[in-house]
């Protein structure tokens, strides 16, 4: 459904993403993992068509993204960014309602169907009770859920999520990922929690220094070897009877600089 072919993107002096090719099948839940700064958010921006790649193409059902009018694209593809803030006084319902934008023309009046759609999206993220609350009074997790509700109200086929479980408590983290999976959408989600990636993803893509290190089913991807190489952590990976991976971390090795500093401190 969504194909990336040899994507490259960078700043003037520095390549940030290099030669990334992957195909996301319809209905699939793809996890995007990698250390901070490995290029997850940048890749999502390319996949969403927000940035033009310097090399390569992104295709949606075979059509290159630049050939799809923005509004039509937004009817099919929704993105929840890592950080999106506003100073304005708006309600949760207003924010979720923005998701209807690509479905409404300049003078199409807001219809009861739109309201129903927004209500449904709010209910899905458990925010219906807070619908009329002010944005400024929301907790970080509530804001995150409001953004997801906005994306769901867009009624997309494809959902791109940048760290959707950021700020959420554990119940909402699991609930949200489960909910997203239940929608039957195609999902690409940047995730930090590898156990979540193992639990929910059909396939996982690993980014390392802007390159696609591996792309495949969790059991193949999440090996102690790779975790050590990419994330610099020691971990034990157990596979349970259902074939699901569980990762237990050992006490993280201290980064060399920190270790040196601590030694220095101990000497004083």
């Amino acid at each position: 459904m969504l194909t990336a072919e040899h994507l490259g993107w960078g700043l003037r002096d520095r390549a940030i993403l290099q030669d990334i090719s992957l195909t996301v099948q319809a209905g699939e839940f793809v996890g995007l993992i990698g250390p901070n700064g490995s290029g997850k958010s940048s890749l999502l921006a390319l996949l969403a068509g927000l940035r033009r790649p310097d090399h390569g193409t992104v295709r949606l059902d075979g059509t290159p993204l630049p050939a799809i009018p923005r509004r039509l694209l937004a009817q099919r593809l929704a993105l929840v960014e890592q950080q999106a803030q506003t100073q304005e006084r708006v309600t949760v319902r207003h924010v979720a309602g923005l998701g209807r934008t690509p479905h409404l023309g300049a003078f199409t009046p807001w219809s009861p169907q739109d309201t129903a759609c927004v209500d449904q999206a709010l209910a899905a993220v458990d925010l219906l009770d807070l619908a009329d609350r002010d944005w400024s009074g929301l907790s970080g997790g509530e804001r995150q859920r409001a953004h997801i509700a906005r994306a769901l109200a867009q009624q997309p086929e494809l959902l791109l999520l940048d760290e959707p479980t950021n700020h959420l408590d554990i119940a909402h983290q699991l609930g949200l990922l489960d909910l997203v999976r239940q929608q039957g959408l195609t999902v690409v989600a940047a995730l930090h929690d590898l156990n979540h990636a193992a639990l929910f993803c059909d396939r996982i893509a690993v980014l390392h220094h802007g390159r696609l290190d591996a792309f495949g089913p969790p059991a193949e991807i999440l090996t102690p070897d790779r975790l050590r190489r990419v994330f610099a952590v020691d971990a034990v990976v157990e596979t349970d009877a259902d074939g699901l991976c569980h990762i237990r971390y050992r006490v993280p090795r201290r980064p060399p600089m920190l270790a040196a500093a601590q030694k220095e401190l101990a000497r004083c």
Binding site: L50, R70, T86, L104
Partner: peptide, 19 residues
């Protein structure tokens, strides 16, 4: 409608289908 979509900035507006 388009102006409403700028609530969270221009890249957010672009993601909502605004040129």
């Amino acid at each position: 409608r388009v102006l409403d979509a700028f609530l969270f900035g221009s890249s957010s507006a672009a993601a909502l289908g605004v040129s």
